[in-house]
Design a protein around this nucleic acid. Structure first.
Length: 482
RNA sequence: GCGGAAGUAGCUCAUUUGGUAGAGCGAUAGCCUUCCAAGCUAUAGGUGGCCGGUUCGAGCCCGGUCUUCCGCUCCA
């Protein structure tokens, strides 16, 4: 395990050194738990997003994609339950480090009092809670000498509002502005557009709506590099089904999503399902697809059977009817008719997927050369189809007309996939640099190229090379990246 | 958020008890030409994380702060 932690440190360093991930605002000492993707990382992330998007929208006739805004009407988050469930004032005891919800702490104390003084205290608390008077609540706790159940002391921290949602104001004049939230999940953008998409796309159940985009959570503790960030990107698909069929689809997506992860090179033994024992208020079944990260098994994707909770809640809060008329015939030969569809959700963290791919790809290799000396390299074995750069074009020397031939090949290839051109330094050094950023193919132009139009292609994973006609390069690389 | 540790060039690290910073690698330019990082020459780079204090003088001592790591805690 210690070894794996060290390895994780090296992965983080490597990501910075080769332009995959930088800490946000590093120039100003950084911003905690926020990261930027660099020139290589942005491309890898885009490739992962594109693969997912294609697998959902292009490969399924009954799934369409949308791109909802980050800002949404404030009532959306009341309907979804986010406002009520995640805005509790919390207080910590400094001696036991135990954290309490303020209302729970006071209510527990009230239980020890007689009826009259208990009710008075509750009334006082409710007044302060309604006024968001955190300092007042703290002095209420202190004046009543409410103690921590573990340390038995009154050594409390200040009370903090513990809301996972970021808020801001819409409109340029603060006083007139309404508070709105940065979405803590992308799913609600799909639910509120259910009718729009279903009607304009003439979608028939079962069908899905897919979306990728940023979400924001004000995590108290955010750690483990890009695993838990305050700003992150989700790739979600909500699949709308006939009530009663949700478990069938839940199992379908469970298998389908695991296979997809395997299709981008994640070994099956590094993936596992973890069924939720305690279900969230909206779910009747839920599981995580976990990946064995360098710091242990952690959630990569969530698959939830969300019942009709979300659509029903939005129907209730918006006072609009959100239903689907199903013309299909049931066993008795009658149409299924009007109902609120059930939802099976697949939700994968793009940043987590990125971390998965990078931690699998990162390898340090050592071997003994023919002359007996030791050699080593650091290589990112990113599967070719998602690698940020597909092909490096390297003239062996930067003279004798070799760069000219190389440039011609570059111009032929770059409309089709991402290429990198380099003529500086010894060829071995250039190969190692390409290994470090994960380029799967290198092609070297040498003097023989001028004679017979062949080049050397060198494969990243095996370090083997072979001679191929220069006219074949484009097709071989394109095929290798499918 | 609590406790512990750390922060010197892009990276890895030096700088004996306080006397105003060095190396290797890397990078850039040129030379060389050689299919797996290690040939030659030159150049660039640090207000020692930041702010303040003690001192004649602080990278070094003290306080605060930011960031990172480890352990708790939290994670709809």
């Amino acid at each position: 395990m210690a070894n794996e932690i060290n390895n994780f440190q090296e992965i983080i360093s490597h990501c910075k050194e080769y332009g995959y991930i930088f800490q946000s605002s590093e120039l100003y000492d950084g911003l905690s738990a926020v990261y930027d993707y660099g020139q290589m990382g942005a491309q890898l992330k885009k490739n992962l997003r594109d693969e997912w998007w294609k697998s959902m929208t292009q490969m399924h006739d009954n799934i369409v994609g949308i791109d909802a805004a980050i800002f949404m009407h404030p009532t959306v988050w009341k309907a979804s339950g986010h406002v009520d469930n995640f805005s509790d004032p919390m207080i910590d005891n400094k001696d036991s480090n135990k954290r309490y919800r303020v209302d729970h702490l006071i209510e527990a104390h009230v239980a020890t009092l007689d009826k009259e003084s208990g009710e008075a205290l509750i009334a006082e608390m409710d007044k302060l809670l309604a006024a968001d008077d955190l300092a007042g609540l703290k002095s209420l706790i202190e004046s009543n000498k409410i103690k921590c159940g573990i340390s038995k002391t009154c050594n409390w921290t200040d009370i903090r509002q513990f809301n996972l949602m970021f808020s801001t104001q819409i409109g340029s004049v603060a006083e007139e502005a309404d508070t709105i939230y940065l979405r803590p999940e992308t799913a609600q953008g799909i639910f509120v557009n259910f009718l729009n998409v279903q009607k304009t796309g003439r979608m028939k159940i079962p069908f899905g709506i897919a979306q990728t985009g940023k979400a924001f959570r004000n995590e108290i503790v955010a750690r483990q590099f890009i695993f838990r960030m305050r700003e992150f990107e989700q790739m979600e698909m909500q699949f709308f089904v006939r009530p009663g069929t949700q478990m069938e689809w839940y199992n379908y997506w469970k298998d389908t999503r695991k296979k997809w992860h395997e299709s981008i090179g994640i070994p099956t033994e590094k993936l596992r399902f973890h069924d939720h024992v305690k279900l969230a208020h909206y779910a009747d079944a839920a599981l995580d697809i976990e990946f064995e990260f360098p710091f242990g098994w952690k959630e990569l994707e969530g698959i939830h059977s969300r019942t009709d909770f979300d659509l029903s809640q939005h129907a209730k809060y918006s006072k609009k009817k959100i239903q689907y008329f199903d013309n299909d015939l049931n066993a008795e030969g009658k149409a299924y008719g009007n109902y609120t569809p059930f939802v099976v959700e697949t939700s994968v963290g793009l940043d987590r997927l990125f971390l998965t791919v990078i931690s699998l790809a990162y390898q340090e290799e050592k071997w003994t050369k023919e002359d007996g000396t030791e050699d080593s390299r650091v290589v990112l074995k990113i599967p070719a189809k998602i690698a940020p750069t597909k092909l490096a074009i390297l003239p062996l020397l930067k003279k004798d007309g070799l760069p000219e031939i190389a440039t011609e090949l570059l111009n032929e290839c770059k409309p089709h996939f991402h290429c990198f051109y380099e003529e500086k330094d010894a060829i071995g050094k250039r190969y190692r640099r390409m290994d470090a950023i994960g380029t799967p193919f290198c092609v070297t132009i040498d003097h023989q190229t001028k004679e017979d139009n062949t080049v050397t292609i060198r494969y990243r994973d095996t370090m083997t090379q072979e001679r191929i006609p220069i006219s074949e390069v484009k097709n071989i690389v394109a095929k290798g990246c499918m």
